[in-house]
Amino acid sequence: MDIGNKEAIEKALTDALNEMIAEEQSEQSIKTNCVQLLTAVFQKLSYSHPDYRPAIQEASKKIVDIYKQRNIYDLLNLSNELANHIVIRLTSKNNDTILKQMVELIHRNYNENLKLETLSETFNYNSAYLGKLFKNYTGEYFNTYLDKVRIDKAKELLQQDLKVYQVAERIGYTNVDYFHSKFKKYVGISPSAYRREQS
């Protein structure tokens, strides 16, 4: 929902409902779980997008209608309708708002496998064009910006009692050697040396 991918939302909701059916949950239990799921997602969106709280609150009021649905298809349709109500508002934006959203997305999900190509598909932009817009907006290329956010987080984590490979994993680098080289590139010293220097 955060990036407005309607197909992904529908798939996630369908998968969640199919999982509940496979677990042979009761009708009441499925409805309650759907209400809790949507409520949690809406609360998270309300926190990360304060400007859209009125639209989110409007959709939230209708969540209780899930209990009135007579079958799984109606329940899924209503869930999608409520999610899409918010998505339409989140995605009817200009370039600056989309770029701001991308920056927020990086800061919240730096540990995930974020790629400009994937985001450009999601936002329905040509990746080269979106990359150029991003560079103009932030002053950095997408991958460089993502690396810098990760390295800043790594600096915080290195001052805790985590091993270097654990820090690498937590910030989204699966290869510890790659993390070493990135850290050294941006900080000038190895992660271990940085930790020693800080302590």
Results as ranks from 00 to 15, higher is better:
Asp51Ser: 09
Asn94Thr: 10
Leu116Glu: 02
Ser192Pro: 03
Lys61Pro: 00
Leu114Arg: 02
Asn136Thr: 14
Leu37Pro: 00
Ala128Gln: 07
Met1Asn: 02
Ala22Lys: 07
Ala22Tyr: 04
Val103Tyr: 03
Lys148Ala: 01
Glu10Asp: 11
Ile21Pro: 03
Leu119Glu: 00
Glu117Leu: 06
Asp177Met: 07
Val187Tyr: 15
Thr174Asn: 08
Arg89Lys: 09
Gln36Leu: 14
Glu197His: 10
Glu117Met: 04
Ser190Cys: 11
Ile63Asp: 14
Glu24Cys: 04
Pro54Ala: 05
Lys182Met: 09
Lys11Tyr: 12
Asn33Gly: 06
Tyr194Ile: 15
Met20Phe: 13
Ser60Gly: 14
Asp15Thr: 05
Asn18Gly: 10
Tyr52Arg: 15
Leu75Gly: 04
Ile3Val: 15
Gln28Phe: 12
Ser199Glu: 15
His85Thr: 10
Leu146Met: 07
Leu90Arg: 05
Lys6Leu: 03
Lys62Met: 07
Ile66Pro: 06
Lys185Ile: 02
Ser127Val: 00
Asn95His: 09
Glu104Pro: 03
Asn5Ile: 00
Glu169Asp: 12
Glu58His: 01
Asn80Pro: 06
Ile106Met: 02
Lys61Gln: 15
Tyr125Lys: 01
Met20Trp: 13
Leu105Arg: 03
Asn84Arg: 07
Tyr178Ile: 08
Val164Phe: 04
Thr122Arg: 06
Ser29Asn: 13
Asn124Ser: 10
Gly139Ala: 09
Phe42Thr: 02
Asn5His: 01
Leu90Phe: 10
Ile72Phe: 10
Leu90Gln: 04
Leu114Pro: 10
Glu169Gln: 13
Ala83Trp: 01
Ser26Ala: 06
Ser190Asp: 12
Leu76Tyr: 05
Thr14Ala: 09
Glu58Met: 10
Thr118Phe: 08
Asn80Thr: 12
Tyr110Leu: 02
Cys34Leu: 08
Tyr125Trp: 14
Lys31Ser: 00
Glu169Tyr: 14
Asn113Glu: 12
Ile63Ser: 11
Leu133Trp: 08
Phe123Gln: 07
Asn71Phe: 02
Ser46Asp: 10
Met102Thr: 14
Asp147Asn: 13
Asp65Ile: 01
Tyr141Met: 13
Gly4Thr: 14
Ala168Met: 07
Glu169Ser: 06
Gly131Leu: 08
Val149Asn: 01
Lys31Arg: 11
Ser46Asn: 05
Arg53Cys: 01
Glu81Asn: 14
Asn111Val: 10
Lys153Leu: 09
Glu10Lys: 12
Ile151Cys: 02
Ile63Ala: 06
Gln57Phe: 11
Phe42Cys: 02
Lys68Phe: 15
Ser79Asn: 06
Thr118Ser: 14
Gln43Thr: 11
Ile30Lys: 00
